[in-house]
Design a protein around this nucleic acid. Structure first.
Lengths: 220, 220
DNA sequence: CGACAATTAAAACGGTCGTTTGAATGAAAA
DNA sequence: TTTTCATTCAAACGACCGTTTTAATTGTCG
């Protein structure tokens, strides 16, 4: 990892960019098996590069995961913040649905071309010490931006209450990214974008909680 | 693993039951680090037993995970089905909230005394080939029972639609079990049962989706 | 007591892991 | 051409993995 800006200057080799091949293979395998269960040898083999190349270009397995992660999540979070900004710039008033549609929107564009969805869901539930700090730090900015807008739409709900609801929104989102179609249904038959529509409906209802003032039973 | 019914006859030794110690240690470590990242040596060390004892009593690491898992999830699923049955036996008509309260209820009783919550959430997102079949097979029975009752309350919604909503319910539940309090909030200050109340509110609203007939925007 | 079975203990098995090393490669710079 | 240096390669390092083997220990019962 002595000088990484070299091969970016002229990328006309026989084999496509070694770094990108490693990143793609790592992304696929991390998504399929998780971090701990994926070996650098499996990554190097899938990328058809030498084992030492992974350390040469990325230094360590943890740093490789971090790079794989940021390569996908950074554009998504940028798109989320940009979408939120353009939504506020528009004339119509914001709604829970329009806010959450912006939140889930970036998941669609990348979903077809990469393994990000399952990768994201997998990393989100990794026990490794680096994954959670990265995730938390990276997610806090966009989360607080969306929380502020949701709070503007629901001024009668406390911010901490909305934090809980967004917490469950993320859980439902991870479930979709990680598992896909519901347990007991065979996957592959449905359009992958259908899941996002169901997710949006579910989360909008969960955030708005219109039945909140009705009487409730206690847990048994 | 030649004869497991022996030490159950008289458990009056100096050290508590070796099998139980292994199970408890395995449960704790699986919850903290996940399956792949937890070694049998770490389990044996935490349980203060010999390494070979893990294979003697449980045969393999996978079988140990299966045992740890079933020890906790079986009573929960039985409590769920029993709670659903007694709910149907009661005179009052079922509601979404009462059904989901029964669904989440068993998580409360065990939550204080064991590491099940995070363990469950961890196993739920493991890539290992045995965890998902176990999970799916074990969960399908209770899931379909609850789906049937939810469908009775919401006859206008298709069962496949309700499958999606229960899918997200599970995701939100796993999020609570795995992460706990929302990202950005310091844990430990709140009552752990508060999270279940927030979860119940969120999921009831998501299942009922009262705003479903209103106009919706497209994803950007 | 001695026989016996259940359990624990210690050591090693082959294998894979992340990481490091040092030499070969090959294109650009001089 | 010679020098230079980023990159690739094969090989090995020590450590740890799940599992197996073999022996020692323990408590029970004839």
């Amino acid at each position: 990892m002595k000088n990484m800006s070299r091969q970016a200057d002229h990328r006309d080799k026989q084999q496509p960019d070694t770094q990108a091949r490693i990143l793609n293979a790592a992304e696929m395998l991390f998504a399929e098996r998780g971090y701990a269960a994926t070996s650098l040898r499996a990554i190097a083999s899938a990328a058809d590069v030498n084992l030492a190349a992974t350390h040469y270009h990325f230094g360590s397995k943890k740093h490789l995961l971090s790079t794989v992660f940021h390569r996908r999540i950074d554009p998504i979070n940028e798109a989320r913040l940009a979408g939120l900004a353009s939504l506020k710039a528009a004339s119509q008033p914001l709604t829970t649905r329009s806010i959450m549609a912006v939140f889930f929107g970036p998941l669609r564009s990348e979903a077809v071309v990469s393994h990000l969805p399952r990768m994201l869901g997998r990393v989100f539930s990794e026990p490794e010490t680096i994954s959670r700090p990265i995730l938390e730090e990276q997610f806090m900015e966009v989360a607080s931006a969306f929380l502020t807008e949701l709070n503007a739409v629901h001024p009668d709900v406390t911010r901490s209450e909305l934090q809980w609801r967004l917490h469950f929104v993320i859980g439902a989102m991870v479930q979709l990214l990680l598992i896909g179609t519901p347990l007991g249904t065979e996957p592959g038959r449905e359009n992958p974008e259908d899941g996002l529509e169901h997710l949006l409906d579910f989360c909008v209802a969960g955030i708005e909680q219109p039945g909140h003032e009705t009487g409730r039973e206690e847990l048994p």
